[in-house]
Nucleic acid binder design. Sequence first.
DNA 1: CGCAACATTGACAACTCTCAACCAATGTGG
DNA 2: CCACATTGGTTGAGAGTTGTCAATGTTGCG
Lengths: 254, 254
Amino acid sequence: MGIRVLLGRESRNVPLLRRVETVAALSAEEREALLRVPMSVRDLPPRTDILCEGERPETCCVVLSGYAIRYKIGAEGDRHIIAFHVPGDIPDLQSLHLAVMDHTLASLTGMTAGLIAHRDLHDLNLRYPRLAGALWRLTLVDAAVFREWIVNLGHRDALSRTAHFLCEMHTRLASVGLGNGDAIELPISQTDLADALGVSAVHMNRTLQELRARKLIESNGRMIMARDWSALAALGEFDPAYLHITPHERADPA
Amino acid sequence: MGIRVLLGRESRNVPLLRRVETVAALSAEEREALLRVPMSVRDLPPRTDILCEGERPETCCVVLSGYAIRYKIGAEGDRHIIAFHVPGDIPDLQSLHLAVMDHTLASLTGMTAGLIAHRDLHDLNLRYPRLAGALWRLTLVDAAVFREWIVNLGHRDALSRTAHFLCEMHTRLASVGLGNGDAIELPISQTDLADALGVSAVHMNRTLQELRARKLIESNGRMIMARDWSALAALGEFDPAYLHITPHERADPA
DNA sequence: CGCAACATTGACAACTCTCAACCAATGTGG
DNA sequence: CCACATTGGTTGAGAGTTGTCAATGTTGCG
């Protein structure tokens, strides 16, 4: 609660609270503690690196609005997008216990980020063990998403891979109260999508055309709007279980 | 310390200790506490499911000898191997905070497993916060490996993908004191490898032949012996940084 | 207007898959 | 001891998916 930091109390970190509550039930006290964590807010332009591979951050970064991505750069300078993040996510929560970044965190769209000091999070964890469990759980859900991406990349073709991706983003956005009802709008360029789904930009384009032709999505410019969720889910073999968004399920002992 | 459980004190969970110490420095007291955790030991035949998707385990499973795998079953019954685990690993550590399994854990080879009750681990975590941090860290390294696999599957062809996999296994085995010096022996069938690397069994076979032709590996029967690590690492763009095996690096505050 | 970034297209090459055999090692029952 | 089944490795041929290259639209913006 320093001078130049903005207090969460001002409802800035509501997205974070909402996210945490998708994976764990909190007591009033814990909720209050989470909202009270000092957070400094920063606005970022699109496509800006926030934290680079090799760095040793001393803060964690909450996505408050917009999209973030994590990526690695290959030997020949090619970019591999590892994850997309929506408001409420803490894309670098792992830095709390993994000192050096093994990938880069960046904004994808214009984005506002909330920075929380590691020290404050460690304090929170010591004071509220169940909150610590909830944060741990967030990192485990992160890993669960990675597992599903491994299956997606290793065993599905470009078409169903893309369908699966769209379903995941829709579900995640909806779980934190975003998502315009039935159709999401993803402001993602085809090149970005291609780097995430492990296909060439040309093939990404053709894949999207195929999805359009099948009336599963609409897309104009860099917006993708889903049209037929159940068909997309079937095509992508999408089962949201791996997202573990069940507020009342907890492994912790009472 | 019940009657029918075997005490770790009997040096059964030394592999676990060794693994934990590859990611965090422990005090004598913490080391002692870890060794003292009650653990029941079980021998498993090859290819046996230990924990299935959908289950809600109340124990965690330490690999004491042999190899374990984690996999998901696709819609058409196809198996996707997500991870390989070597002695010292706790493949289902995430179950501590993620109640329901989103994949299956199984033995790959003959294997001996040590089961630790969630309750005992939670106790340990409350009593020794730094040990809790170390376990959290283990799950984060798990996730870091997933991230690298995403890059491997999404952006490398079968040849360099396989090279990368071999380098990872070698490094992980060596980090816990296994691995016969320069060459590892992987008792993995080509079919299993294929399911892990996202290629068909036929193509896996041809890929291995190519690696053999290039004098990078030797393989007879179901043993794969690496021949030229530096060439494999170059081919697979392997950089062990993502394994975070640096005993003295810690993000935790002093 | 003209640049810049992104989307789209066509043609061709490369990678990987599937199918369908066949071979080799191992283990079991007669 | 051999016949046989089973598992896993190997091979060839043809097809399908995806990548690359290069060019052409299209859109937004200074």
